[in-house]
Amino acid sequence: MSALDDLKRDLTKLRDEAKVQVHLGTMEAKQEWEDVETKWKHFVTQVGLHRSGADITAALQNLGNELRHAYQRLKKAL
């Protein structure tokens, strides 16, 4: 299993946890959720391309880390 696969698995868990909390949260949290979901969809779409080159892999790692921080921020805010 690659590092990106591990990252995707971790992000899926964080996403599921945050999704439940956002459902019960404020409008501000719901807006941030929508913004993060756009990035999540991009990440999931691009994960399969990580074998295309180091630049794409680095960009996906950065996006994955950004998603991780956003989901953690959402969980803490609620």
Results as ranks from 00 to 15, higher is better:
Q46Y: 06
H42P: 00
A58L: 07
V44Y: 02
V44M: 10
Q46A: 11
R51A: 07
W33G: 03
N62Y: 02
W40M: 10
V36L: 10
L49N: 09
H42Y: 08
K30D: 00
K30V: 00
K39G: 01
A59N: 13
W40I: 05
H42K: 15
T57P: 02
F43M: 06
A58S: 11
L49K: 15
T57F: 07
E28C: 01
V44R: 12
V36S: 12
N62G: 09
Q31L: 14
A29V: 05
R51Y: 09
T38I: 14
L60Y: 03
D35L: 13
A59W: 07
E37V: 14
Q46M: 12
A29K: 13
A54H: 02
K30Q: 10
M27K: 13
E28S: 14
G64H: 03
G64K: 14
G48Q: 07
F43V: 08
S52W: 14
N62I: 04
R51T: 08
E34H: 06
H50I: 08
S52T: 14
G53V: 10
K39M: 05
K30E: 07
A58E: 05
F43S: 07
E37D: 12
R51K: 15
A59L: 09
W40E: 01
A58F: 03
G64N: 06
L63V: 11
T38C: 03
M27T: 13
R51W: 09
V44P: 06
L60N: 03
L60P: 08
R51L: 09
M27N: 02
A59M: 13
H50F: 05
T45N: 12
Q31P: 00
S52D: 12
A58D: 08
D35F: 04
W40Y: 12
K41G: 02
R51Q: 10
I56Q: 04
H42L: 13
W40D: 06
G53W: 11
H42G: 01
A58V: 11
N62P: 01
A54T: 08
M27H: 06
T57C: 05
F43E: 06
Q46P: 03
V47F: 01
D35S: 14
K30N: 00
A29H: 12
D35K: 15
M27V: 12
A58H: 14
I56R: 10
M27W: 02
G48F: 01
K41D: 02
G53A: 06
D35H: 11
V47Q: 11
E32Q: 15
V47I: 15
K30T: 00
D35Q: 10
T45G: 09
K41R: 14
K41W: 03
T57W: 03
A59V: 04
N62H: 13
E34F: 09
H42W: 03
E37T: 15
G64F: 09
E34G: 06
K39P: 01
S52R: 10
M27L: 07
Q46F: 00
E32L: 15
A59R: 14
E32H: 07
R51N: 13
V36Y: 01
S52I: 08
Q31V: 13
